[in-house]
């Protein structure tokens, strides 16, 4: 279930790849997360009685250290597994996101669609889409955003990718959501016109998305009339 388009590795894949010490660390971490999930069933995400207001469950500390124990290339996957195994609640993912480094935030964003959160975690996606850190923007436009962002916010997310040069290939279910979206097409055309007026190239990705906005049967003519200035403008991409 973790081998979807974001290519997070499954526990099986990690077990096959990791050395003995890393595997033992992962086993313990996942056991702690599972224990926390069982513990927290009654009061999800609640702090332990008598604990410092800043105290975190042990698995959350492991969440931060995942890359150092299992390799930085596996950090996203391990963090994601911990979130799934702990059945992380909204307070938990919010805390991990708020208190996380950029890499820790990214792992939260990449995992939201695997948790049973409905649309309650949207504020995290919205926060990431306000960021100028392109790693966060790219992680925010995954399956959870595709499932839950309203049309206005979703269109702005696509535009943000074009502005910040996050490849739109990062946008989950782009074709499906863009299909027949006349308002998105208008925004793209306006952006293209603005770029052209400034003598700047229109991003190639803009054309890609614009083509996807065409309603059925118009696939060969994606550009609406006012897109005309955009099409011939850039002779080369920067």
């Amino acid at each position: 279930m973790l081998t979807s388009r974001n290519s997070l590795k499954s526990r099986k894949e990690l077990d096959a790849e990791l050395g003995g010490a890393a595997r033992a660390w992962l086993d313990e971490a996942l056991a702690e997360a599972a224990h926390d999930a069982a513990d927290a069933t009654a009061t999800p995400g609640a702090p332990r009685p008598g604990a410092s207001p800043y105290a975190s469950p042990p698995w959350e500390l492991r969440y931060a250290a995942a890359g150092r124990h299992c390799g930085q290339e596996n950090a996203d996957s391990v963090r994601s597994l911990l979130l799934v195994e702990s059945r992380a609640s909204l307070p938990s993912v919010t805390r991990l996101y708020d208190q996380g480094t950029a890499a820790e935030r990214r792992a939260v964003l990449l995992t939201l669609h695997l948790l049973d959160l409905g649309d309650t975690a949207l504020p995290l996606i919205e926060d990431a889409l306000r960021a100028n850190d392109t790693r966060l923007v790219a992680a925010a436009v995954g399956p959870y955003a595709a499932d839950h962002l309203d049309p206005h916010a979703w269109r702005h997310a696509v535009l943000k990718c074009l502005f910040t040069e996050v490849p739109v290939a990062a946008v989950a279910r782009l074709g499906e959501r863009a299909h027949g979206d006349a308002e998105l097409a208008r925004m793209l055309n306006d952006f293209a016109a603005e770029r052209t007026a400034a003598g700047r190239p229109v991003p190639e990705d803009l054309r890609t998305v614009l083509a996807l906005t065409a309603p059925a049967g118009e696939g060969d003519h994606p550009a609406r009339p006012n897109a005309a200035p955009a099409a011939p403008a850039p002779t080369e991409e920067s």
Partner: peptide, 16 residues
């Protein structure tokens, strides 16, 4: 690198 799809972000590494 600050490239969003290469530094840790693995969205594109597998599926596409």
């Amino acid at each position: 690198t600050p490239d969003p799809l290469h530094e840790g972000n693995s969205i594109l590494r597998g599926g596409e």
